[in-house]
């Protein structure tokens, strides 16, 4: 039998890997990849807690479905923005886009 803690630990590890990616990736596409990892970590947590702590309800699963839907929308827009920026500036590196400072 697997205790709930292991799922939560898995989720935490996955989250921190995603966080590490978000903090260190220079490439905008890999930045989005890291964001997807973070979202998946959250989803695992939601579904696990739903199953272990409140098995009679379906809130965790419903919310995770919503997260998947929103993540799809977010990545679509994010990727199209990257492509559109790439067309103009021939770059996908985040440190090339610092026009908003000062």
């Amino acid at each position: 039998m697997i205790p709930l803690g292991h799922f939560v630990i898995l989720s935490a590890v996955l989250f921190c890997i995603g966080l590490f990616g978000v903090l260190t990736q220079r490439n905008a596409i890999r930045f989005l990849i890291s964001v997807e990892i973070i979202l998946n970590a959250a989803n695992i947590n939601l579904v696990a807690c739903n199953r272990y702590l409140a098995p009679a309800n379906a809130e965790g699963q419903v919310v995770s479905l919503f997260v998947i839907g929103v993540a799809a929308a977010a990545s679509v827009v994010g990727l199209i923005l990257i492509i559109s920026v790439y067309r103009q500036r021939k770059s996908v590196f985040l440190d090339d886009f610092n026009l908003l400072k000062w």
Binding site: V22, T24, L94, F97, L99, L100
Partner: peptide, 17 residues
């Protein structure tokens, strides 16, 4: 303090984390 604003998203994210 405006030099704190680097315009680099990773710096902001690091601060946020």
């Amino acid at each position: 303090s405006r030099s704190l604003q680097t315009g680099l998203v990773e710096n902001y994210l690091l601060a946020q984390a």
